[in-house]
Nucleic acid binder design. Structure first.
Length: 292
DNA sequence: TACCAGGATGTTG
DNA sequence: CAACATCATGGT
């Protein structure tokens, strides 16, 4: 077993609550307070599980193991659960906004659950464009089950996200039976081909400043401001990336502030001035408030 | 029934 | 440049 120590502000219960928000989630499975996930590393699949007992306890369930794999998984989990952020700085910023401050108190120790793989967050956010979350999860499940690789463990199937190469070689018609709109399918092909051809890589983007990353992402047809910011907060640790167009955020803000109507983009930008430096984190906390 | 969902794009006035 | 139609489907 691999042990991973956690920072003082760390709340595994809230993390589990976030991770189990939809039953159709196809890229991880939770059994008895333990999270299972498959990732691909150097052309092979790794299945691992995470539980918590005073520290994070990781067990690699797939057969092949070595130090490189162990390090990769540790890094992945550290990224996924955002173990290195200094939450107290976020909480300090949140003090300027009573509503956000109370969310921070309610969800104390909740870390921004990210997507260590940029390709995953781009595909997921494109799938989620415009449609409701249940439908989005259904679409993702179809994509993963049809084109992703699978590991069977303890009589259960665990899937990995399809690779960029796999998706890049599909045609528009392949998405039709999965009930993707043509434009959504085209956007996924665009992103997959950028990755497969090596024009876009997480390593390259990570070195660039905020505005340049956004510029590069938005240049791809199908990635707008919302998608770019979503991926930047979830995969590139830009805690201030702000998907201001997000309908879920609009609804959460309306409820939490007790507004008569959803805020306009302009109003929301104004409110978010108080969260500056942590607008992505604030967004994540507002999303979490939607779980009730 | 019409309208909205974790938007983005192309077209029209 | 702002307003509008389009997308595919499920939920309300």
């Amino acid at each position: 077993m691999i042990k991973l120590s956690t920072p003082t502000a760390f709340n595994f219960e809230e993390i589990l609550r976030f991770l189990s928000r939809n039953e159709k989630e196809s890229l991880h499975i939770i059994r008895n307070q333990e999270v299972f996930k498959v990732i691909s590393f150097e052309n092979s699949l790794i299945l691992f599980s995470i539980s918590f007992d005073s520290c994070l306890q990781i067990v690699i369930r797939s057969e092949h193991q070595n130090q490189k794999i162990i390090d990769f998984v540790k890094n992945y989990v550290c990224d996924w659960f955002d173990l290195e952020a200094n939450l107290h700085l976020f909480y300090e910023t949140a003090k300027t906004d009573e509503v956000l401050a109370s969310l921070c108190q309610r969800f104390y120790g909740l870390r921004m659950i990210g997507m260590p793989d940029l390709f995953e967050s781009l595909i997921w956010s494109i799938i989620g464009q415009q449609i409701n979350l249940n439908f989005a999860y259904a679409l993702k499940e179809r994509l993963v089950h049809n084109f992703g690789q699978k590991i069977v463990y303890a009589d259960e199937s665990f899937y990995a996200l399809p690779t960029p190469e796999k998706l890049a070689n599909l045609n528009l018609e392949d998405f039709q039976p999965l009930q993707f709109s043509r434009s959504k399918a085209q956007y996924i092909l665009n992103v997959s081909r950028e990755f497969a051809e090596g024009n876009l890589s997480q390593e390259t983007l990570k070195k660039l400043p905020f505005e340049e990353v956004k510029e590069k992402l938005v240049k791809i047809k199908g990635i707008g401001n919302w998608t770019a910011n979503y991926s930047m907060m979830k995969s590139l640790k830009n805690y201030d990336a702000f998907p201001v167009e997000d309908v879920g955020l609009h609804n959460a803000v309306k409820t939490q502030y007790g507004l008569a109507a959803k805020p306009t983009i302009q109003e929301l930008n104004q409110m978010a001035e108080n969260w500056k430096g942590w607008r992505g984190y604030a967004t994540f906390y507002f999303w979490h408030s939607l779980l009730g």
